[in-house]
């Protein structure tokens, strides 16, 4: 008995089962209300930042995603870290040369929030090629916390995905693939500036809809037809169906362009220099998603 237990504990992180009691409507309503409190401002590049422009956010986001993937972080860590980053940048003019430090700090915080074994300051510094020091990271952590008013319990799209899936008439197996794809879309959205001010529920609904579409699940049940699903999900998140449809389309085109980019890069010389690696990582998941068996 004891041996068995030890074995399990050494091998992997133990986690609790999903609590089905949390998938009820009361929780969902509360999250829908709460999510607005954590939205970054849509136009901080214009109104707050002088040194930082959108493409830099993409660079730092791509790097952060790569680190999170390499470190096998929980799926929510990356979107949560991006939420912290955007919220910080919404209130604090920041120099370009501090952006990577901020990114690392946000991963540090998000990892502590969500993981049993969080990322260490040292490890994150290694990922900056030791261009920042752990002591700096810890100070930046304090500064970030203050700017975020110590409120780190942001609602993320991940919180909604499970709710949506529980409402769809699909098999457990399909659900897993669907979840995986939707989570990948969520991560993709977090790298793109267009989604900064989109409510997490919207990103989650759009991602689930795009995943259903991509997996061609719609034929099995009428509720999964594109039209019905969008209507249904928009009701669930109390939003306009057209908004949701627009969001879904945006996700699909983002997916398409990042796939194209990845393909181009993999055709090119495979000296996997910086950008190439990430984009490939990003989109190694779904595309013509049916073929992908995760």
């Amino acid at each position: 008995m004891e041996h068995q237990l030890l074995c399990c504990e050494v091998e992997s992180i133990r986690r609790a089962y999903q609590d089905a009691n949390l998938l009820n409507d009361r929780v969902l309503q509360t999250m829908l209300k709460a999510e607005d409190n954590y939205l970054p401002s849509a136009n901080y590049f214009k109104c707050v930042q002088k040194d930082i422009v959108p493409y830099m956010r993409r660079i730092v986001a791509t790097w952060m995603l790569e680190v999170c993937e390499e470190q096998k972080c929980e799926e929510e860590v990356f979107p949560l870290a991006m939420n912290y980053l955007d919220r910080f940048l919404s209130v604090e003019p920041t120099k370009k040369s501090r952006l990577q430090l901020l990114g690392a700090t946000c991963m540090f915080l998000a990892s502590k929030m969500k993981e049993t074994i969080p990322l260490t300051a040292e490890k994150l510094c290694i990922y900056t090629d030791n261009s920042i020091r752990p002591s700096e990271l810890l100070q930046m952590e304090l500064l970030t916390l203050n700017k975020l008013k110590w409120d780190l319990a942001s609602v993320t799209p991940h919180d909604f995905i499970e709710h949506f899936l529980s409402k769809l008439p699909i098999h457990q197996e399909t659900k897993q693939i669907l979840r995986k794809h939707a989570q990948t879309f969520v991560a993709l959205c977090a790298t793109d500036v267009k989604f900064i001010a989109s409510p997490p529920s919207m990103v989650a609904a759009g991602s689930v809809a795009a995943a259903v579409q991509g997996l061609h699940l719609k034929s099995t049940d009428s509720i999964l037809s594109s039209q019905n699903l969008t209507d249904f999900l928009s009701q669930v998140i109390k939003s306009d169906p057209d908004c949701l449809r627009a969001c879904q389309e945006q996700i699909e085109s983002l997916l398409e362009s990042s796939l194209r980019q990845a393909q181009q890069q993999s055709h090119g010389a495979s000296t996997d220099t910086k950008a190439a690696g990430d984009e490939a990582d990003l989109s190694c998941t779904p595309t013509d998603v049916r073929d992908v068996n995760i």
């Binding site: 992997s12 790097w63 096998k72 040369s97 074994i117 290694i126 990922y127 261009s131 996997d272």
Partner: peptide, 27 residues
Amino acid sequence: PPLERMEARVSDFPKPSACRVLFGMPN
């Protein structure tokens, strides 16, 4: 957690390509 226990993480060593300076060395 903040300063130790690098080894407990279930992951390989950082890929060199992922370790990079994005916007120049800070002063």
